[in-house]
């Protein structure tokens, strides 16, 4: 299936490398966001739209 998928292509290493890079980054990012961080770590970030500053008339 692997060979059939890439039939007619001369640069098979390129998309495979890109796919691996994508997968590893993605897994690392998900782990970092959901396993190593808690909701509280992002509380300040998530409240940024609600803290524009005190309006001066």
């Amino acid at each position: 299936m692997f060979k059939q998928f890439f039939a007619g292509m001369e640069f098979t290493a390129l998309p495979i490398f890109a796919l691996l890079l994508f997968m590893s980054f993605f897994v690392a990012m998900v782990l970092r966001t959901f396993a190593f961080k808690t909701k509280r770590d992002f509380q300040h970030h998530s409240e940024l739209p609600l803290s524009d500053g005190k309006e001066i008339p």
């Binding site: 998900v30 966001t33 909701k39 992002f42 998530s46 739209p49 609600l50």
Partner: peptide, 18 residues
């Protein structure tokens, strides 16, 4: 704008990163 209009932070900031 959605959190702004709803008056509450986004449901999951972590999900927004992903």
């Amino acid at each position: 704008f959605l959190p702004k209009a709803a008056g509450r932070p986004v449901y999951s900031y972590r999900l927004s990163i992903v």
